[in-house]
Amino acid sequence: MSKTSWGAQTLVHLSVLVLVIMWTIPTAGLFISSIRDKDQLALSGWWTSLSDSQQNLMHRTEGPDSQTLVDGKYILKGNIFGAEKANDISVFGWKSRSPEAFKAGTTADMNKGQTMAVEANGDYLLTSPTEWTGSRGKRVFYKVTVPPRFTLDNYKEVLSSEGIGQSFINSLTVTIPSTVIPILMAAFAAYALAWMEFPGRFVLVAIVVGLLVVPIQMSLIPLLQLYNSIGSFFGVSPKGYLGIWLAHTGFGLPLAIYLLRNYIAGLPKEIIESARVDGANHFTVFVKIILPLSFPALASFAIFQFLWVWNDLLIAMVFLGNGEDEIVLTGRLREMLGSRGGNWEILTASAFITIIVPLCVFFSLQRYLVRGLLAGSVK
């Protein structure tokens, strides 16, 4: 191997490694965040989850009504952690501007002869030469070392939410036909554009390539108007599974035809000619020869189409609606997050729940992905 080839191969391997790391690190961070305790998740990043973390907290002591008089001093005492498992307190303070002014186990001088002492186990003792006043206890600022805590509560909260099961079934009902229908239609079209001679074939190929760059958002309104016109003519509502299947089919057909046409056109011409000599018609050649040989390209498009449809929210809202019986999984999770206000920690668990099925599809078909995408690029 020449030095140039070795250098190019090394560069390719390094580039692939960098891309893998760029995708793996955020995914790992998302998964770790999804199983962290919600309180720790709100205070620190996922990269701190594998080691003890320092947290600055605040606690109010018992109120003045619980004070006792001992040796001429009024005393407030208790434990910051109460009945909970104690964490080690390293420093404390009685001012918000200096929460780490004193080490645990020492006594801090406050105003008017008052003192505050906080032990590492959370015991506190406040003394005053005069009676404590006010309606609430005094504030104690402290820093504790908190061990990492992992839990499945976020997943339980999402999975136990009302309507998740029905939404999961709705997503499968939308996604599976929306993946199979364009594959079947595109396979026939790709074979015709690749091996059948007819006027305007290359014009159709150019149109297919042009449709690849049409934004979905730009075509949604005219497409919905067309559906409404057709629905009113036949007396049926365009909102339903049939409408969303047709919408996803229309948006997915250009890429499907483009990929399959490139792959089918690159198949050995001799195989097809031999079948034609033996008396096979186009349909027989397509079913018995082209389809079995085109499985890598079919699997490649199936992966992309399944991912797009499964993760779709816009088209589902437009053509299916947000009713309790029709809403898909992405819409259900969006509504659940919106109704929970600041309870955003379940977003990480929701993300992993939505990608379980696409991951299964991808890993079952990924060995065909590169072969299908590179179809027709090398002769």
Rank of each mutant, 00 (worst) to 15 (best):
I230A: 10
Q225G: 03
L220G: 07
V214L: 15
L260A: 04
S229D: 09
P254G: 08
S237I: 07
L226G: 02
Q217E: 15
L223A: 03
H248S: 06
A247P: 04
S237C: 04
I244T: 00
L255D: 07
Y241S: 02
I257R: 01
I221Y: 10
Y241W: 10
I216V: 15
L253A: 08
R261I: 04
G252C: 14
G231A: 10
G235N: 13
I221W: 09
W245R: 01
F251V: 13
I216S: 15
L260T: 07
F234A: 12
G240Y: 01
G252K: 06
F234Q: 08
L259R: 03
S219P: 03
I221G: 07
A247Y: 08
V236N: 11
Y258T: 01
I244H: 00
M218G: 15
F234T: 14
L223R: 03
L220N: 06
Y258V: 01
I244Y: 00
L211M: 13
G231P: 11
S219H: 04
L259S: 07
Q217G: 12
A247I: 12
I230S: 04
G210K: 00
K239V: 12
L260M: 13
Y258S: 04
H248W: 09
S237K: 08
F251W: 15
P215Y: 09
Y258C: 02
L224M: 10
P254Q: 07
A256F: 05
G235Y: 13
G235M: 13
F234P: 05
G252F: 10
F234S: 11
L224P: 00
V236G: 06
P222D: 03
L226W: 04
I257C: 04
P222C: 03
P222Y: 02
L223Y: 02
I216D: 13
M218I: 14
G250A: 13
V209W: 08
L255T: 09
L259M: 13
W245C: 02
G210N: 05
K239Y: 09
